[in-house]
């Protein structure tokens, strides 16, 4: 398991946290309980399994919702 932090462009709409959570939940290999969407700092934090899923795929999933990824970090 790796811990990832993704910095997004400013989140503004009340329902975007729900959308992002939903998108991450639908991906295989993300620890669902670890998903934290920080609305005010516009960050997403979660743990994921690097074997089946790359950070690029996750970024793409968020991007497809219409949110620009500014920076991501995996530790």
């Amino acid at each position: 398991m790796k811990a990832a932090t993704i910095q997004l462009e400013d989140l503004a709409c009340p329902s975007c946290t729900q959308k992002i959570e939903g998108a991450l939940n639908s991906l295989e290999g993300i620890d669902e309980d670890s998903i934290k969407v920080l609305f005010n700092s516009s960050k997403v934090k979660f743990n994921f399994d690097e074997d089946g899923l790359s950070i690029e795929e996750i970024e793409l999933a968020i991007n497809r919702l219409g949110f620009d990824v500014i920076k991501s970090r995996v530790r």
Binding site: P14, S15, Q18, K19, G66
Partner: peptide
């Protein structure tokens, strides 16, 4: 578009 994306991840959003 926002509404479609929301529905795809099973969220009935305001959109």
């Amino acid at each position: 578009i926002q509404a479609y994306q929301a529905l795809r991840v099973k969220v009935v959003s305001i959109d």
